[in-house]
Nucleic acid binder design. Structure first.
Lengths: 264, 264
DNA sequence: CGATGGTTTGACGCTACTCAACATAAGTGG
DNA sequence: CCACTTATGTTGAGTAGCGTCAAACCATCG
């Protein structure tokens, strides 16, 4: 893993949510792109992205860098770290819509609908590439291929949402937990985040509960049960699947191989 | 309403799922577009769409015109009628992901991911504009504005999915029912489907249950309760909201006014 | 008239929620 | 270094909401 935050939570990061990123590479040197896990791109497009990118941003775990009420439609690419999109009801009930991994593009919806209507929060220390919302139509006009890629990314995220909707709507607690682990593992795998058969797992049980539409207590009991069944293992914040077959059988998940997606 | 199917279910339609549409207007005469409920478009773009459209298609209620296993990535615009997207588990549990109203664009995800992974079924007799999947990139290149619009539509649908995920994940039965009615009414309103303060309501209780992640029986009891409370009314398949305020309070729904979206 | 699809109601059981307490680890300030 | 706090995980007890089963009702249609 290129940028790791799991060795030490790096408490020094503190509340420096908008510190100018000191060591951000140029897009041409983007470590993420170089990993070879993303769809290819033309040099022209790469140059355009570099130019389109306005700033970089770091955020500490727990930072809500898009608020649910936000109206400024900035666009982000998650460069490193984990985050999640969420919505809340006025009495505090929270639903995590989906988790965001490196390469995920954030903020398209705000640009079209008025305002965000969903929040985004960092799970780990994250670094973000920030793009202005104004140039969007220009991007489509100058480099249609990039517009195409944006639509592609949007479609991919929709597929994840579909999955999650099926999960919260129709799967029971054990199936939900199994599904979440499989999905996260699969997605992390696609972007090259598997190390020694394990992926970072920065969620606490409250996150799991909020993602699956379960209560904290019941989530705990369910996770313990699957743990006792030897289906997975979490050590020092790293998740490994000990019985993928059983997990898939339990979750009724298909093992469609995830193909590379573009990186903007 | 321009094309009505609610007067009589038109059982004569039978299984003519691929009958050549006899009376489909040219895009320039599109009744839907003329309704003035969609974002404006340039004449060039209109001409392109007309040319892009390959065929038209009618389907009777209950017709699954995109199967979950489908791999051919045809694109559709729902011209008239209601439909819904769904996913199923192998033991038959079904989750309705979202309902489709006139103007909704269908099939983008298949084009990018391999295969559909979701099905689409007609709720009423529907008419569809069919586009080939191959020309998509060309569309982006020739008329970036249309590509932009496609992304726009995709973002709008994602917003609906977010809502639905919050609903199934964190709202209780009564709140879910209230939310569904509000959402459908609002969306129908945007495309000019409100007649005398009511909208067509072609869902049966099984549909409602599958959309909300509830059992049929519990859905029935919940709907009865809200009915008794005087929150809504369904007569002859037409839904009217009798106490919008109370519904919104119950569902904890914001009353964001939906803006027009593009029509492809 | 029976058949069919949808709605309605009651009885009962289980899944998942709430409340509450305790455990553990790590951080904080004195 | 220790008392204190905070965040997170764990477990038990009791309960409510929702699911399942079953049967009846109702309208439409052939």
């Amino acid at each position: 893993m290129s940028i790791s935050h799991s060795q030490k939570p790096a408490a020094g990061n503190g509340s420096a949510t908008t510190a100018p990123a000191p060591h951000f590479p140029r897009c041409a040197d983007c470590a993420l792109r170089r990993s070879g896990n993303f769809a290819p791109i033309t040099p022209t497009e790469l140059a355009f992205i570099q130019d389109f990118r306005r700033e970089n941003r770091l955020a500490a775990p727990g930072t809500v860098f898009i608020r649910e009420s936000s109206t400024d439609g900035k666009l982000y690419t998650l460069y490193a770290g984990w985050a999640f999109r969420f919505k809340t009801l006025s009495d505090g009930r929270r639903q995590i819509l989906n988790f965001l991994l490196p390469g995920d593009f954030i903020g398209m919806q705000q640009h079209f609908n008025d305002g965000a209507a969903y929040g985004v929060e960092a799970l780990t220390p994250v670094s973000l590439c920030v793009f202005p919302q104004t140039g969007l139509l220009g991007l489509f006009k100058e480099l249609p291929g990039l517009g195409f890629d944006l639509t592609w990314l949007s479609a991919s995220q929709k597929t994840v949402l579909d999955e999650n909707l099926l999960t919260t709507g129709r799967r029971n607690a054990a199936e939900r937990v199994a599904m979440l682990m499989l999905q996260l593992f699969q997605r992390a795998e696609r972007v090259g985040l598997v190390v020694d058969g394990a992926i970072e797992f920065p969620l606490n049980q409250q996150h799991v509960a909020d993602a699956l539409g379960l209560s904290l207590v019941h989530t705990n009991k369910t996770m313990r049960r699957l743990l006792a069944m030897g289906l997975y293992k979490i050590e020092n914040g790293w998740l490994s699947l000990r019985d993928t077959k059983a997990l898939k059988r339990l979750a009724d998940a298909d093992d469609a191989l995830l193909r590379p997606v573009p990186l903007i």
